[in-house]
């Protein structure tokens, strides 16, 4: 990858090999009042809760990011019921992400904001992007995030009356509670090397 930004206006001179997307990311971050980070070709712009909707309006109207790709959240938690725990202690939060793109050059920006995991509330984006409707319903039932001003925050996938928010890290995977993952331990001897000490119980005739 050739990443020599020859035409940069020397906005960031801290690193000699700035990512080719860094300039654009900083431009977006400056306009929406957030901080930009480029990781593995993915631009993430973190904004505050208050400027969540305004940031989307700016991204849509000034930067032409008219394509609403997706919205979801990450539960950064130190108490993990399912999967591997984080290696380092983190500040517990729900990170709300929304991915926007344009439909001409292929630019893409992920906007991010941190929510309080106890009472996550944020204004809805439905007025800005109509496509946010279903994505917010999904995030509501999966993470318990309340989207203020959403027209119909009903369950999308889960049955009515379902308790809990399945994609939270505190939500156990119920099948694993009942039956441990069968692939975790090989309880049988491998077929090539039958152990001589114990007689095979599976096929007594042979």
């Amino acid at each position: 990858m050739s990443s020599s930004p020859s035409e940069t206006e020397a906005a960031v001179e801290t690193e000699p090999q700035a990512h080719p997307l860094q300039e654009y990311a900083d431009e977006v971050a400056g306009a929406v009042g957030g901080t930009a980070e480029v990781q593995f070709d993915t631009i993430k712009v973190s904004v505050s809760n208050d400027s969540w909707v305004d940031a989307h309006l700016t991204a849509r109207d000034r930067f032409g990011l008219v394509f609403f790709s997706w919205l979801s959240a990450i539960d950064w938690s130190n108490q993990v019921e399912v999967g591997d725990p984080l290696s380092d202690e983190v500040e517990e939060r729900l990170e709300l992400l929304s991915a926007l793109g344009d439909i001409t050059e292929g630019r893409m920006v992920t906007l991010s904001t941190d929510l309080d995991p106890e009472t996550p509330v944020i204004p809805s984006l439905v007025e800005v992007y109509a496509g946010a409707n279903w994505h917010e319903r999904e995030a509501h039932e999966m993470f318990g995030i309340d989207f203020l001003g959403h027209p119909n925050l009903a369950h999308l996938y889960l049955p009515d009356g379902f308790l809990g928010h399945p994609l939270r890290k505190s939500f156990p995977l119920l099948t694993r509670e009942v039956k441990p993952w069968p692939g975790k331990v090989d309880v049988e001897a491998m077929p090539e090397k039958p152990s001589k000490d114990e007689p095979s119980t599976e096929n007594p005739e042979s």
Partner: peptide, 29 residues
């Protein structure tokens, strides 16, 4: 963390992968 998208027959399919250096992802959107 990275988001990779591809042109699938039905349209844009992408994965937002959050890894913590383990055998499996921390979160896969």
């Amino acid at each position: 963390e990275t988001y990779v998208r591809a042109e699938n027959p039905k349209g844009e399919m992408g994965y937002y992968l959050v890894s913590d250096g383990n055998l499996g992802p921390y979160r896969l959107k």
